[in-house]
């Protein structure tokens, strides 16, 4: 195996051609960053071989096309690890291994790719998961936005976990792991199109430690989980309400939102319930286990702001309703199209 470090300053079409340049990129840059005991680096093979444990496997994929590539609190690299790890976590599965594929735009500076590989390695290490293989393609300059990343993840379902909208019952409580809107607003501001500055960072992180703590105390009482990414809490809970044919009601005052996120939403005319998150999860828990579940999540570093934000009611079926402190309520729909700021 070639161990020479990658010296090309920019990605070119030849780096995706499968020939010598591809091999130099893989062995000189990608493998050194992502190598681990499971990554069969000594002999780059066509598939990763993993030992099978007993039980059930969870298997998921996610693609990342974020712009800008880097923003306060994260980047496309860390996001691509957290996104897939979190999809496994909210399925009740302990993340086991990831595959990552890159679509690179010719002309991408090698240092940009290296920074993202490094971010992926750090995120993997923090999340306790390994990248065991992947693929790289290069497209012509102008045909992609710098780089796109797709990650696939495989995980092992924890004991006693049975998550389904069909198990959700009237009276169940809705748990949220922490303040919402940080990621969406951070990325919006990072695009530099708005003259708004805020001390704010993306919440991009693995939620597995919090989910693991939750499942450890009440796996059988957790009915449903979701990470409220694009479309925000509103879209996740609308889907739940529709799938379960029940009504989800939230208390506005109990939903944790940072002041600077609230402020940005007010200025831009956005509903924070529609704003994306990358490091939070929602869980519906049986009422009898709700307090225990909340304590377990709050005990995990990063879970201190977790809150019970609402409950499940019988009707109107398929709706998400938010109650204000002054005694009225509104129906919150799923996000339609893109979030577009209002003018007046």
């Amino acid at each position: 195996m070639v161990t020479e470090p990658f010296r090309d300053t920019r990605i070119e079409l030849s780096h995706g051609s499968g020939g010598l340049a591809s091999r130099r990129l893989l062995e000189g840059l990608i493998v050194p960053h992502l190598a681990n005991s499971q990554f069969n680096a000594g002999a780059l093979t066509d598939a990763a071989i993993l030992p099978i444990e007993s039980g059930h496997l969870a298997f998921t994929a996610d693609s990342f096309v974020v712009q800008p590539l880097r923003f306060a609190g994260g980047s496309i690299g860390s996001l691509s690890v957290h996104g897939t790890v979190n999809d496994l976590a909210v399925s009740g599965a302990r993340p086991l291994a990831l595959l990552s594929t890159f679509i690179l735009e010719a002309g991408l500076p090698a240092v940009v790719l290296e920074a993202e590989l490094s971010a992926m390695a750090a995120a993997c290490s923090a999340a306790g998961v390994n990248i065991v293989g992947g693929d790289t393609k290069v497209v012509e300059h102008g045909k992609a936005d710098g780089m796109y990343v797709t990650t696939c993840g495989i995980g092992v379902l924890e004991a006693n976990v049975k998550l389904s909208p069909a198990r959700v019952q009237v009276g169940d409580k809705v748990l949220l792991s922490g303040p919402i809107g940080d990621h969406g607003i951070t990325v919006l501001l990072a695009r530099g199109e708005l003259d708004i500055e805020a001390e704010l960072a993306s919440d991009s992180r693995s939620v597995w430690p919090m989910v693991q703590a939750l499942l450890a105390v009440c796996a059988a009482e957790v009915r449903w989980m979701r990470d409220p990414t694009r479309g925000g809490v509103a879209s996740s809970l609308n889907e739940l309400a529709q799938d379960a044919k029940l009504c989800v009601t939230l208390r506005e005052k109990d939903i944790p939102v940072r002041d600077c996120v609230r402020g940005a939403c007010e200025v831009l005319g956005l509903d924070v319930l529609h704003v994306a998150n990358e490091g939070q999860f929602l869980a519906v828990v049986a009422a009898s286990a709700a307090e225990q579940a909340l304590s377990a999540v709050r005990a995990v570093p990063g879970g201190e702001a977790a809150a019970l934000i609402g409950e499940v009611e019988s009707g109107p079926a398929g709706r998400l309703r938010v109650f204000t402190e002054h005694g009225s309520s509104r129906v919150v729909e799923m996000l339609v199209g893109e979030q577009l700021p209002r003018i007046c």
């Binding site: 309703r321 109650f323 509104r330 209002r342 007046c344």
Partner: peptide, 25 residues
């Protein structure tokens, strides 16, 4: 179209007005 338009505002926030009045706290 606009969330300020009477129809969109009504569609988004108030379709269950009757239910809200009976169940509201």
């Amino acid at each position: 179209v606009s969330s300020e338009g009477a129809c969109a505002a009504y569609y988004n926030y108030a379709r269950d007005k009757q239910t809200v009045i009976t169940n509201g706290n």
